[in-house]
């Protein structure tokens, strides 16, 4: 029995050490185009996916993409089911208490999309009694609650996908989401919805989008930071960003 246990322990140790040269990267399980989405053939596509591949190739590590639901993504990291999160997660103070952020790899503001022909402004007066959809636990949600949470009906959803379909169904008047994702959605549904532009910066929006690691993975963070710092200034990044968004969304002060 003892021998068996030792053998078991050894094989577990072998598995653990094997896991060290490959990284499990959490991306959003739900489609979040053009950042990440699973195509019908099962392949992953999007700006973030391309970045992950580039970073992993440069760092010479094997990366495995693990799709994880947004509301379980930090728990998945902390319970060691994944090693890093690349899921358009903005750096915020609250999150930084739980996870270790790398340097940001992109930075955009949230934008407002709504039913067409409304008299929109980000004021309590204009949004009084309006139904506004945001994704639970996003900086957009924190922002809208701070700005008009007392007068508007804020509807919180588990995924961006559900917000989009409820806006198209006319159940929502507006939704607030990351500029790029919002713009892509508005362009795809011209006529049905209108793009009302980005919001003004507010500290609640955090400091750009970064990868999240477990707090004790400091060495890994240093490796990621070095790679990300180089990457965001590179031509590869500029080209990739241009291909997807027609503009460079690299964080400016790095």
């Amino acid at each position: 029995m003892k021998k068996f246990l030792v053998a078991m322990a050894l094989s577990f140790a072998a598995v653990a050490s094997h896991a060290a040269d490959s990284l499990r990267i959490a991306v959003l399980a739900e489609p979040y185009p053009p950042f990440s989405q699973k195509m019908p053939d099962g392949k992953w596509e999007g700006f973030e996916i391309d970045l992950i591949h580039k970073i992993c190739t440069d760092m010479k590590v094997k990366c495995q993409i693990v799709d994880t639901a947004w509301d379980g993504i930090i728990p998945a990291l902390l319970s060691n089911k994944v090693d890093a999160i690349f899921a358009s997660m903005s750096i915020t103070k609250e999150r930084a208490k739980k996870v270790l952020f790398t340097h940001p790899y992109y930075n955009t503001l949230p934008a407002v999309v709504g039913l067409p022909g409304q008299d929109y402004s980000m004021t309590k007066k204009a949004l009084k009694g309006k139904y506004i959809g945001v994704q639970n636990g996003t900086t957009s949600a924190f922002y809208i609650k701070k700005k008009v949470g007392s007068v508007a009906h804020i509807r919180q959803y588990a995924t961006q996908d559900e917000i989009n379909s409820d806006l198209l169904a006319g159940r929502l008047d507006y939704m607030l989401a990351d500029n790029i994702a919002a713009k892509a959605f508005a362009d795809k549904n011209k006529g049905a919805v209108q793009f009302y532009g980005t919001v003004k910066y507010d500290p609640v929006l955090g400091g750009g989008v970064a990868a999240a690691l477990r707090p004790n993975d400091k060495a890994l963070a240093a490796r990621f930071n070095k790679e990300i710092d180089q990457l965001v200034k590179s031509k590869f990044y500029a080209d990739l960003s241009d291909k997807y968004f027609g503009t460079n969304i690299a964080p400016t002060n790095n």
């Binding site: 509301d71 999150r95 208490k97 959809g133 636990g137 924190f142 919180q156 559900e162 409820d166």
Partner: peptide, 23 residues
């Protein structure tokens, strides 16, 4: 109910979880 954006008991708890990261 929380799957269709109705904030019931579980929905409220999920909001709290997403804001505080108390899992």
């Amino acid at each position: 109910a929380s799957t269709i954006a109705v904030v019931d008991l579980l929905g409220a708890a999920n909001e709290v979880r997403s804001m505080t990261f108390e899992v």
